[in-house]
Design a protein around this nucleic acid. Structure first.
Length: 211
DNA sequence: AAAGTAGCCAACCGCCTAGAT
DNA sequence: CATCTAGGCGGTTGGCTACTT
């Protein structure tokens, strides 16, 4: 997952950090701080450049650094902040508290970007469903299979009842809120007009809950 | 089981800004 | 002012892992 270590032409080591290097850097910074990153590797006994040391410390070694899975609240906050601030990852990470800018950036590109883009696309295609980045992405777009299926089932249950009663939906507005083991999910969907009998079967789970 | 592919994340690169001289 | 240096930031990449064919 990390770059193979090698020594460049200037005698500077690059690539993945070893445990020994991590220990040296951690011990040095915890004892002396980091008044000068450029000089630090020399005094810490590292064959790295200062930039590399700083990056390793900021993204991996510094205390109170939060790692691991992102909570729903964090995801929502990132989406909201990205909407407000754009790609200012350091500012976003700062407001999250405990996450590095690199980590937030990676998480955005790996997970969140797709959800926001998907929501926008769906919104523009559906016409009747008023889903957009501002009012939905921050609270919805959590396309775990179980959750999508859950909402799909929930909505199907509602529509089945209406079909049984031979009703069409005009000015349908409903609010659903439910929880799964992993997170809570709140969704608010409004439609101007909705023809139940034009609903087509879905072959893609991404589109299931958003028709 | 092997090969191919996509997803993910740690690390690097290059640019920008602020502060010192 | 101009120049230099260091730190910070965002974009990009290398390569491992997991998944698919």
């Amino acid at each position: 997952m990390v770059r193979t270590p090698f020594i460049d032409k200037n005698g500077i080591k690059r690539g993945a950090w070893s445990e020994d290097e991590d220990n040296k850097l951690r011990a040095f910074v915890e004892r002396f701080g980091h008044p000068n990153w450029r000089q630090l590797p020399k005094y810490a006994g590292l064959m790295r450049c200062g930039k590399s040391c700083r990056l390793r410390w900021m993204n991996y070694l510094r205390p109170n650094l939060k790692k691991g899975n992102y909570s729903l609240e964090e995801d929502q906050l990132i989406i909201k902040l990205h909407n407000e601030l754009g790609n200012r990852w350091s500012a976003i990470a700062e407001k999250l508290g405990g996450r590095s800018d690199n980590d937030v950036k990676n998480h955005w590109h790996a997970h969140l970007k797709k959800r926001v883009r998907f929501t926008n696309t769906n919104s523009s295609q559906s016409g009747s469903c008023q889903l957009n980045e501002q009012n939905v992405a921050a609270t919805l777009t959590y396309p775990e299979v179980s959750s999508s299926d859950h909402l799909y089932s929930l909505f199907n249950g509602l529509t089945d009842n209406l079909i049984e009663q031979n009703q069409s939906i005009e000015q349908l507005s409903f609010f659903t809120s439910f929880e799964t083991d992993s997170f809570s999910w709140t969704n608010n969907i409004e439609t101007e007009s909705f023809d139940l009998f034009s609903i087509q079967p879905f072959d893609n789970f991404w589109t299931k809950p958003f028709f």
